[in-house]
Amino acid sequence: MHELSVCQALVSQLEAVAAQHGGGRVELVKLRIGPLSGVEAALLRQAFPLAAAGSVAEGAELQIDAAPVVVQCQACGASGEAAPNRMLCPACGGFRVRTVSGTEMLLESVELSAPAAEML
């Protein structure tokens, strides 16, 4: 399951973010994942607690938002949403489209708690 290695890389990134902002614990992680990214959200949810164990992200909530597939037609220039398995122009029905969105996995935001020293 490659989602575990994706989560391990995510946890490394979260530790760097936490260190950069004073070393607080990660409380909430928001991701945006497109259906063409090659990452399964359900498997990512299962792998995250394993990857986060013993790190600053242990116990953090993982929130995953789905990104739509958006295409731009090379024939008529129209843009719009398309189904992942039916990538056609929403305006003219043409098949010569460029993917604008839907392939991404983005770390949208991280919420940190205040470091213990600041809580006193």
Rank of each mutant, 00 (worst) to 15 (best):
L50P: 07
G38V: 02
I33S: 08
I64V: 12
G34F: 07
I33W: 07
V11N: 04
R32N: 08
V56T: 09
L36K: 01
L31W: 04
R25V: 06
V26D: 15
K30L: 14
L10I: 11
S55I: 00
L10S: 06
E61M: 02
E15D: 15
R32K: 11
G23W: 15
H21W: 11
G59D: 12
A16W: 15
G38W: 02
A19T: 14
F48V: 01
G59L: 02
A51F: 12
P68Q: 07
G38F: 00
H21G: 14
A42F: 01
G23H: 15
F48I: 02
V70R: 11
V39N: 02
E27Y: 03
Q46F: 07
L50S: 08
E40F: 11
A18V: 00
V17G: 09
G38T: 03
G22W: 08
H21T: 13
R32Q: 11
V17D: 13
L10Y: 06
V29P: 10
L36H: 02
G23P: 14
R25E: 11
R32I: 09
G59C: 05
V69T: 12
R45L: 04
V17E: 14
D65V: 11
V71G: 03
L62W: 02
P68D: 09
A16F: 14
A67T: 13
A52H: 06
V69Y: 04
L44F: 01
L43F: 05
V39P: 00
F48E: 02
A57R: 02
A52M: 12
S55C: 06
G34I: 06
L43H: 10
G34Q: 09
P68E: 08
I33Q: 08
E61C: 00
Q20W: 06
G54R: 03
L36G: 03
A53E: 11
A66L: 13
R45K: 10
R32D: 05
A66H: 14
